[in-house]
């Protein structure tokens, strides 16, 4: 359990969808607490229910059962008018950005202020300020069609910040972006979190996004929370099958590799550009044996996994593992490490 005051609490939230072939349970009895000021990740494969979950937070989806508490007040049961007022405090950004295509960047950012009834000049002033903050001061009068994906998301972020929200929900906000742009958007979100103290909720299917930006994470599978905890904890010691599947994908390819002192490393773009294996060897003064490696460089980011046989001298293997911990590279022991 994290320290601090929860800003969002879901209590036994269940969501059913009626379809022609019967009722589908998208969310099953979910209870989570998101603490004020933290960056909270919700990760799951597609169809796991994460998009439905985030939409339950601002009641774009009404839970079939359960309660959503925001800042100490229950949102479920509010009138439409009251709910709309609360929604100004819970901003959202989207995978497809969802900008108004017939409005300029500035007019998009001013839209929430228009809704809130802010005077035009005041809104324009604040809009410009926000666009400057996200690095788009020279694209104020550009239309979305004239902007790149990363720039569109920056407009989306500026628009989300316009109403001074307490919470920012990010629904697969970087999934339509290339790895480098993803990095810069996550960087911006982290800065915003620090600068404005806004609680950020990140929905994603990419472990690297969680690892890079989040403090805590919940793993959702088949509509249920499979595991929840600090990101470091889940990365180094995933307990449930669902967590392991996300931290160590493609496991079946290496099922045949067994033996002592084996560890599996995962490179998901979260690691730094350092030559990890070489540094590990230099630090420990002992060689490692590469049993399996499958690494791809996707637009400047390394992704893949590797199986290493560590030194069979305990002191050296300890230094090697310690180095991996320092670099925040996820690993699991396959064979017993002596």
């Amino acid at each position: 359990m994290a320290e601090g005051k929860p800003i969002i609490s879901l209590r036994n939230v269940t969501k059913d969808f009626e379809t022609r072939s019967g009722t589908i349970r998208a969310l099953d009895n979910i209870s989570i607490d998101i603490v004020q000021g933290e960056t909270y990740g919700i990760i799951g494969l597609s169809g796991a229910g994460k998009s439905t979950l985030v939409r339950c937070i601002n009641l774009l989806e009404t839970p079939t059962e359960g309660r959503v508490v925001f800042n100490g007040e229950s949102l479920t049961g509010l009138s439409r008018k009251e709910l709309n007022l609360r929604r100004r405090e819970i901003a959202m950004i989207f995978q497809q950005f969802n900008l108004l295509m017939q409005r300029t960047a500035l007019q998009n950012v001013c839209f929430p202020l228009e809704i809130a009834g802010v005077k035009k000049e005041e809104a324009a002033r604040r809009g410009k300020e926000l666009l400057k903050r996200v690095g788009l001061e020279d694209r104020v009068d550009s239309y979305p069609a004239q902007l790149s994906g990363g720039q569109k998301q920056r407009v989306g972020i500026a628009r989300a910040l316009a109403s001074n929200p307490k919470v920012l929900l990010c629904d697969e906000a970087t999934s339509a972006l290339d790895p480098k742009t993803t990095r810069s958007i996550l960087e911006l979100l982290k800065d915003i979190n620090k600068e404005f103290g806004i609680t950020i909720v990140i929905i994603t299917h990419e472990m690297s996004v969680i690892q890079y930006a989040c403090d805590r994470v919940a793993i959702i599978e088949a509509g249920e929370i499979a595991e929840e905890g600090s990101v470091d904890e889940i990365f180094t010691r995933p307990k449930t099958k669902a967590a392991k599947r996300l931290v160590f994908p493609d496991q079946e390819k290496t099922d045949g590799i067994v033996g002592e002192n084996l560890i599996r490393l995962v490179f998901d773009g979260g690691a730094s550009y350092e030559p990890v294996i070489a540094n590990m060897v230099i630090k420990s003064g002992a060689p490692v044996n590469i049993m399996y490696a499958s690494i791809q460089n996707v637009e400047g980011v390394n992704k893949g996994q590797m199986i290493l046989e560590l030194s069979n001298i305990k002191k050296q293997s300890e230094i090697q593992l310690e180095y991996l911990n320092e670099q925040k590279i996820a690993y699991e022991e396959i064979g017993e490490v002596k």
């Binding site: 601002n58 774009l60 008018k81 709309n84 969802n98 900008l99 295509m101 839209f111 228009e114």
Partner: peptide, 23 residues
């Protein structure tokens, strides 16, 4: 998605009709 975005900002249906749908 654009309509959903407007809803997430707390826009009333009237605002959505005028400023999102028709615009």
């Amino acid at each position: 998605g654009v309509i959903e975005a407007a809803q997430s900002m707390g826009a009333s249906n009237k605002t959505i009709i005028w400023k999102v749908m028709l615009s």
